[in-house]
């Protein structure tokens, strides 16, 4: 295991972490503010990627396609909020799980019917293709670095939005005491709809940005959704800061575990055992992390004030 390989995998891990954060941020806000558990958040990530496929094909440009896809995702988010999520406010969590599970089945199948079941690709923009030399023997794709940078920028912007602006203040107030905020003359319903659609757009942004380096296929959001759940559970539901820390942690552990755990185990186990146990243990690693965090802190690392 060389230092270069380690560095590359750390960058890959951070990049997965940033994607996870973009998805988890919307999830944790929607749950923290509206007390709605939204399983359909993963399909919004997937829809972002598919909308990006169509938008780049239509416009012939990554840069024109991206805003188009985001606006479309925002609109779809508003529609989903109006049709399915709004009637679920204040309902039993079990009902929210069932209804949004139905949405997943519908959208996954719908995507198959519209775009086909075969994986699709999004062409990488010219300006960001190619790779850059970070140090001796370490070349890294420009696009992946850009993805990392964009994710960090959005994270920073989100943090400022939630902590420094009037909307962010209302959002936090609405989360802790919705009737009070509504008594102050704020339209809570409209605020919730905005938060939901914004969260959907963040997830779609993650999907659209991940498109050029992953294959775009039906069900691609499901795996990420569950990792995003792990992230918000570790971070503490409702906490943007917790989601950020936990997303990077989960991204790093998952990526590094898959790359190096088998080799590490070879130091202590016979190679044949190590190649059996390594991958299994690596795929368990983030869940073991979650179990450990929860065992000591049942409400996550940064629990939202009760």
């Amino acid at each position: 295991m060389s230092t270069t390989l380690l560095l590359v995998q750390v960058l890959n891990g951070l990049q997965l972490g940033v994607l996870l954060f973009l998805v988890a941020a919307g999830l944790t806000l929607v749950f923290g503010v509206m007390d709605v558990i939204n399983l359909a958040h993963g399909v919004q990530y997937m829809l972002g990627a598919y909308l990006m496929v169509t938008a780049t094909a239509l416009t012939g440009s990554f840069w024109l396609g991206l805003p188009l896809a985001l606006v479309a995702a925002l609109v779809l988010g508003l529609v989903l909020e109006r049709l399915v999520i709004r009637p679920l406010y204040g309902r039993d969590h079990l009902e929210q799980v069932l209804a949004t599970f139905g949405v997943i089945l519908f959208v996954n199948e719908g995507v198959k019917m519209v775009w086909g079941a075969a994986p699709l690709a999004i062409p990488m923009p010219d300006a960001l293709s190619g790779s850059i030399r970070l140090m001796d023997g370490l070349n890294y794709t420009v696009y992946r670095l850009a993805l990392l940078g964009a994710g960090l920028l959005v994270a920073g912007g989100l943090y400022l939005l939630v902590t420094r602006t009037r909307s962010g203040m209302l959002l936090r107030a609405g989360a802790s005491n919705a009737p009070m905020v509504s008594a102050l003359g704020v339209d809570i319903g409209a605020l919730f709809a905005k938060v939901f659609a914004f969260g959907a757009m963040l997830a779609a942004f993650a999907g659209a940005m991940a498109g050029p380096i992953l294959s775009v296929e039906p069900g691609m959001g499901d795996g990420l959704l569950i990792l995003a759940f792990v992230v918000i559970v570790i971070g503490g539901i409702g906490s943007i800061r917790g989601a950020f820390v936990a997303a990077l942690l989960v991204g790093l552990i998952d990526t590094l575990g898959r790359s190096f755990l088998t080799d590490l185990l070879k130091l202590v186990l016979p190679p044949s055992d190590a190649t059996q146990v390594g991958p299994a243990l690596a795929s368990m690693s983030v869940y073991l992390l979650m179990a450990c965090v929860l065992f000591f802190r049942p409400r996550g690392l940064f629990p939202a004030p009760a």
Binding site: L94, L98, A99, L105, F106, V107, E109, G110
Partner: peptide, 18 residues
Amino acid sequence: RIVFGPLLVLLVLLGGWR
């Protein structure tokens, strides 16, 4: 599933189970 999914949503929204 394109039928089954919306059926589930309707079940919840119209049923009001608990």
